[in-house]
Amino acid sequence: MSRVPSPPPPAEMSSGPVAESWCYTQIKVVKFSYMWTINNFSFCREEMGEVIKSSTFSSGANDKLKWCLRVNPKGLDEESKDYLSLYLLLVSCPKSEVRAKFKFSILNAKGEETKAMESQRAYRFVQGKDWGFKKFIRRDFLLDEANGLLPDDKLTLFCEVSVVQDSVNISGQNTMNMVKVPECRLADELGGLWENSRFTDCCLCVAGQEFQAHKAILAARSPVFSAMFEHEMEESKKNRVEINDVEPEVFKEMMCFIYTGKAPNLDKMADDLLAAADKYALERLKVMCEDALCSNLSVENAAEILILADLHSADQLKTQAVDFINYHASDVLETSGWKSMVVSHPHLVAEAYRSLASAQCPFLGPPRKRLKQS
């Protein structure tokens, strides 16, 4: 649940008159999402009104509101027999009622949201009550392989729920002597030191190019640089560091992050930047690179990204790559990247197969709970 924001200063709310007192009302909304995959969808019983329910879910471990999704594969009634019906059901509720908006969509073979439908307002739910769409999607369109909505005969539904909580009022009075504290510009100011090479005390040599930097900042941000300058190493004695395995453009992006906490060109060089972040123990930059690479996972590059993640101990990226390969196994196994990995990294192939087997055979063990970014 997000923290209630402070109200904007009255002088910034309007260029008009300023009242002596004010009130700011925040209506709290808890948002969460749920993904439900139905394997072997074409084998569902086709009687009209037949119901399939998901397991229950909530916004978190401490949330007492429990929900589930309900599907009628062949419609709810005679009117909707040519459609799939989809509903959000409130299973248990400690209150007399709650209000919530919802959005349903289908994830296609690429994991993209399609055929989205959402409620136009927050509906009133009581325990045992459901709301949804009797005519969510035509069955003939859903079952047509050309539309790519049932890869490997799996129907994957994605649901986003927004639950309306209580409202909170914050009130106060205006004073004539309003003090406005300026925003912190530390990142910009440190970035200026790097860009202008002011007050530098060490030189970093990268592929024949020299960059002036500040030992204190490098040591504070990177345990690797800290070790170089702290001990009686040649880098500490000469205040000069030779860097041979990072390209200059990648190095500059890494230094921008060290000084400012930002990497504006990360998406263009996420793979190389991940390697640099791993070498210099820049954990936050490493996770930022993992996130960017996750966003660009595809059938063509899944094997290469899995190898990269394994090489640099990028655990979150590795998990996402394995899950992606499992979901698109029939396509990924035909790529040149996968065939190369079979020869060069057989242990990763074995890991992917083990994960695929456990996903398809849940009876082999208890269900695993899916539970950071600093």
Rank of each mutant, 00 (worst) to 15 (best):
D315N: 05
R221G: 13
N169R: 01
N265V: 13
R284H: 10
D140I: 03
E145N: 03
I307Q: 09
K286R: 03
E20G: 04
I170F: 01
C202F: 08
W338G: 04
T114Y: 04
E189F: 07
H345Y: 08
R99L: 10
N326P: 01
S54A: 12
G16M: 02
P366I: 14
P73K: 09
M178R: 03
L149F: 04
S336Q: 02
W67Y: 07
V179L: 02
I38M: 02
R3K: 02
E242D: 01
L107I: 05
Q320D: 08
K95L: 10
F32S: 09
Y327D: 09
D166V: 03
Y123S: 05
C289Q: 00
L90N: 04
K372H: 14
V250G: 11
L348T: 05
E234S: 15
D130S: 09
K81H: 14
K372L: 08
S105F: 04
V51S: 07
E145M: 03
H345L: 03
M117I: 05
K238V: 06
A276V: 05
D315W: 15
L90M: 10
S295V: 15
L88D: 00
E235G: 04
S162L: 01
C184T: 01
P182G: 07
F43W: 11
S355E: 08
Y280N: 07
Q127W: 07
Y83M: 06
S344E: 05
V29M: 03
G75A: 14
D153F: 06
C361S: 14
W22D: 00
Q26H: 09
F199P: 00
D323L: 13
L218G: 00
A263D: 05
F158E: 03
F104K: 00
D77E: 07
A19F: 13
R3V: 13
E47C: 01
E304G: 07
K28A: 12
T114V: 09
E79H: 06
E112K: 13
K110G: 09
E242Y: 11
C203L: 15
E253K: 03
S42T: 10
V98N: 10
E160G: 04
S226D: 15
L142Y: 03
L157P: 01
H345T: 12
M254I: 06
V343S: 09
V179D: 09
K215N: 11
V163I: 08
G191N: 13
E334W: 03
H214W: 07
E235A: 08
R3S: 08
E189P: 09
S162N: 03
S171Y: 05
R70I: 14
A61K: 08
A329V: 09
N265Y: 02
E242Q: 01
R368N: 15
R370Y: 07
D152Q: 15
K238M: 01
H328G: 06
Q373S: 15
E290A: 08
L193R: 05
K115I: 15
P264I: 06
S336A: 13
I217E: 00
Y24K: 09
M117E: 05
G132T: 00
L143V: 04
S226H: 04
F229D: 14
M341I: 10
G132S: 00
H231Q: 14
A321N: 03
W36P: 00
S14G: 12
V299Q: 10
C202W: 15
L149I: 07
S226L: 15
E112H: 10
W22G: 01
W131H: 00
G75T: 04
Y83C: 11
E79D: 14
D130P: 04
T114M: 07
N40T: 08
P94T: 08
V161G: 05
A19L: 03
V342T: 08
V163H: 06
A216V: 02
Q26R: 12
Q165W: 09
F102K: 00
F133C: 02
H231D: 14
M233S: 11
P94H: 14
Q26G: 06
S96R: 11
G16S: 04
F324E: 02
D315V: 04
P7N: 12
Q209T: 12
I243G: 03
L143G: 04
N301F: 03
L149T: 04
V206T: 15
K31Y: 02
R221D: 08
C203A: 14
R70W: 13
A292E: 11
L193V: 02
I170H: 03
F32R: 06
S344G: 12
I27N: 13
F225R: 00
L186V: 01
A227K: 03
S96P: 11
E145S: 09
N196R: 02
R198G: 12
S358Q: 03
D140Q: 12
H231G: 13
W338V: 00
M178H: 03
P8W: 08
D201A: 00
E210D: 10
R121W: 10
F133Y: 12
N174K: 01
F363N: 13
E230M: 11
T335W: 00
G132P: 00
F136V: 14
A122M: 14
V250T: 06
F363L: 14
L155P: 03
W194H: 06
I325N: 00
S295W: 09
L190I: 08
C93Y: 06
L190H: 05
M176I: 07
P182C: 03
L306M: 03
P5G: 06
S54P: 01
V332Q: 00
A207L: 07
M178E: 05
R138K: 12
C68D: 09
E334P: 11
K180S: 03
I52F: 08
N196L: 01
T319F: 09
V29R: 10
M48W: 05
D315Y: 07
F324D: 00
Y83F: 05
Q320H: 07
D201K: 00
D310N: 07
Y123H: 01
L364P: 12
S330M: 12
M35I: 05
W67C: 06
K279L: 04
L193K: 01
L274Y: 06
L107H: 15
F104T: 15
I307T: 08
M178Q: 06
G172W: 05
A61L: 10
Q212E: 09
V342F: 12
S374C: 14
V164Y: 13
Q360I: 15
R370A: 08
I52T: 05
C23R: 02
V343K: 09
S55P: 01
T200R: 13
A213Y: 14
H312C: 02
K268E: 01
A146I: 09
P151R: 07
E145I: 09
I305H: 12
M288I: 07
S340C: 12
N147L: 05
R185W: 09
G365D: 15
L311R: 03
P151I: 01
L150P: 02
T335I: 00
S330D: 08
N301E: 15
S336M: 13
S162I: 08
L90Y: 02
F211K: 09
N108P: 09
V179G: 06
I305P: 00
I258R: 00
S6F: 11
S336N: 13
A350I: 06
S85G: 10
L293P: 00
S298E: 03
R45G: 02
Q165G: 08
K339N: 11
Y87R: 00
D166H: 15
G111L: 10
S42W: 07
F125C: 00
V224W: 09
L371Y: 15
A19S: 11
Q173H: 05
P17Q: 04
V91N: 11
R370G: 03
W131E: 00
P362Q: 15
H345D: 09
E112M: 06
M341N: 00
L190N: 09
V287D: 04
L333P: 06
N108K: 15
F104W: 13
R139H: 13
K95S: 06
M35P: 00
L266F: 06
S15N: 05
E160Q: 12
A359T: 03
R368M: 15
N147C: 08
E290M: 11
E234M: 15
C159F: 06
L282M: 09
D310E: 02
L364H: 13
W194T: 06
G128I: 13
F158L: 11
P366F: 11
E145V: 07
Y123C: 15
